[in-house]
Amino acid sequence: MEPKNFTHVSEFILLGFSEDPELQPLLFGLFLSMYLVTVLGNLLIILATISDSHLHTPMYFFLSNLSFVDICFTSTTVPKMLVNIQTQSKAITYAGCITQMCFFELFVGLDNFLLAVMAYDRYVAICHPLHYTVIMNHRLCGLLVWVSWIMSALHSLLQSLMALRLSFCTDLDIPHFFCETNQLVYLACSDTFLNNMVLYFVAGLLGRGPLAGILYSYSKIVSSIRAISSAQGRYKAFSTCASHLSVVSLFYCTLLGVYLNSSIVQDADSSATASVMYSVVTPMLNPFIYSLRNKDIKSALKRLFEEEIIKRPIFLGLKNCF
């Protein structure tokens, strides 16, 4: 076996999308606007579900949790990329890279589990409507969210500990805009067999399990909808899960596209571009998907804005009196 020049790693270099100086302002403006839209849109969903008592139901409880996770999801990667573009520095410390990877694994896992939990909620609502309030009680809803957090945290911790055992040589350039687990394993000079086994086994288990639950739930939902005699009843039943189905399709199609592309093409640039779809674009589109097709969310947002408009003139009038 040839000796390898292992070195103590202090920082990595995130190459990002392009080194062209003329493209940096465009990339900064694009990702800043996408990040602001993501944060604002998901915050509005959270505020609407909290402020409106009509939305204090399991479906909107899970939706507000998904919105919170989406804000954290994009905040794990995009702000660091924006700072690097603004400061014209591509460096990220070793500790910062491992921390970013840890939180990224946590929130992508949470997205995965929460989508499965929301599919189960729709399954109970459509297939067992008379027992919905009994089955989806406050205790079960809280338990499902806590289990999602615990499973995602354990997975994130395992991947982080496996990354800490890796040794690196002189090539510390990551052809990505954030520290992804696959990229760190690829850069390592030490034996990565155990890392690859854990990566594919755990990711396959935690990825396929929720996906199998989603597919099973929707197979039962489709069967129940087909059994409804009236066309209006079928449309109403389907409309309750159309938004969730759109988000699931967008998330899993882009996520699977990234990993299939990386395993077949082995093109770092295309992998980084594809990663933007599920890590930035999907969290940005989720609020639009849920609000545009959901009358309850639109009504809650309308009441929220009307209350703010009413309060503001009263406040300004009192201010002018002094």
Rank of each mutant, 00 (worst) to 15 (best):
P3A: 04
E11W: 02
L15E: 06
D20C: 06
P21Y: 04
L26Q: 13
L36R: 13
L36A: 13
N42P: 00
A48Q: 14
T49H: 01
T57V: 10
Y60H: 11
F68H: 12
V69M: 03
D70V: 06
T74F: 00
L82P: 02
N84H: 09
I85K: 03
T87Y: 10
K90L: 07
A91F: 08
Y94I: 14
G96A: 04
G96M: 03
C102M: 09
C102G: 11
E105Q: 03
L110D: 09
L110I: 07
L110M: 02
L114R: 00
D121N: 10
V124Q: 05
Y132S: 11
L144I: 04
A153G: 15
L158Q: 07
Q159G: 05
S160Y: 00
L164A: 10
F168C: 13
L172K: 14
E180F: 00
T181K: 04
N182V: 05
Q183E: 10
Y186P: 06
Y186D: 11
L187P: 14
C189K: 12
S190G: 15
T192V: 09
F193A: 15
N196P: 08
V202E: 15
L205P: 06
G209W: 01
L215A: 13
Y216G: 09
Y218C: 11
I221E: 07
V222E: 05
S230V: 13
S239K: 03
T240D: 05
S246E: 01
L250F: 00
L260S: 11
S263Q: 13
S263N: 13
A272H: 09
T282Q: 12
N294T: 10
I297V: 14
K298L: 15
K298P: 04
S299K: 07
S299I: 11
I309K: 12
R312H: 05
R312P: 00
P313Y: 03
L316M: 09
